[in-house]
């Protein structure tokens, strides 16, 4: 289909960012990400079947937002209808709380425990088991760089170093302007397009150290 299938020279990466910039096809970013089909899902969760499934990491967080009001309350109610036991709503509810507040504080755990009639210690035990729950506040953009084997073979460590350098932060810390928190993450299941980086809700693939400034610029400019 294209000359790339016969490529034997340098890996034919074009610009870094999403998987569509590699390979045999010319697709827009929206087409690869699926935005053409779904765009952004409604805060009330849409059909109940999907309500427990797609929390977002948002740039703008509301740490004091109530659990839950308005469309978020609707989504919470929908979540509760999908499981034979209330307990099963715990992960989706924590996801939702994190989407709103940006992290899961002890107070948030307590409120979720009350909402679902679960013991507080139990909620803490579950929350701490899962790494996606931020136990403390993070920056507007949570940058998670995969350094696991497939990305590592292709320079994941260097990409991580580049993010730290260009954001001026330490691993796990938040930059002084509050914009960036950079973390190392385990395999993101995008091993064919190394290095994979997750920034808030989005995957950035084929990221190279050289491409990092452009990504940060885009984040600052577009807020995503």
């Amino acid at each position: 289909m294209s000359d790339h299938t016969k490529a034997s020279g340098p890996i034919p990466f074009r610009n870094p960012g999403w998987a569509g910039n590699t390979g045999s096809f010319d697709l827009t970013e929206a087409q690869v990400r699926g935005d053409d089909f779904v765009g952004v899902r409604p805060p009330d969760g849409g059909h109940p079947s999907g309500a427990p499934s797609y929390p977002y990491m948002k740039a703008d967080k509301a740490p004091d937002a109530p659990l839950f009001e308005g469309p978020y309350r609707e989504r919470f109610e929908k979540i509760l209808t999908r499981y034979p036991e209330t307990r099963a709503a715990l992960l989706p509810t924590l996801n939702l709380a994190q989407e709103l507040r940006g992290h899961i504080s002890p107070d948030t755990m307590r409120e979720v425990a009350v909402l679902l009639d679960l013991p507080e210690a139990y909620v803490r035990g579950v929350t701490s088991f899962y790494t996606m729950y931020n136990k403390k506040p993070v920056g507007r953009f949570l940058i998670q760089v995969c350094t696991n084997i497939s990305c590592n073979l292709c320079g994941g460590d260097e990409v991580l170093a580049a993010f730290l350098k260009h954001t001026g932060t330490e691993l796990g810390a938040t930059s002084s302007d509050g914009d960036f928190t950079v973390m190392e993450v385990e395999c993101l299941a995008a091993c064919g397009t190394p290095t994979a980086v997750q920034i808030n809700s989005r995957y950035y693939e084929n990221v190279t150290p050289d491409g990092v400034p452009a990504i940060l610029e885009r984040l600052r400019a577009r807020g995503e």
Partner: peptide, 15 residues
């Protein structure tokens, strides 16, 4: 409860 996982696991109460 057990807090955290793997080698970082520790027994604790709610804070």
């Amino acid at each position: 409860t057990v807090v955290e996982r793997g080698n970082r696991s520790v027994i604790d109460t709610f804070f």
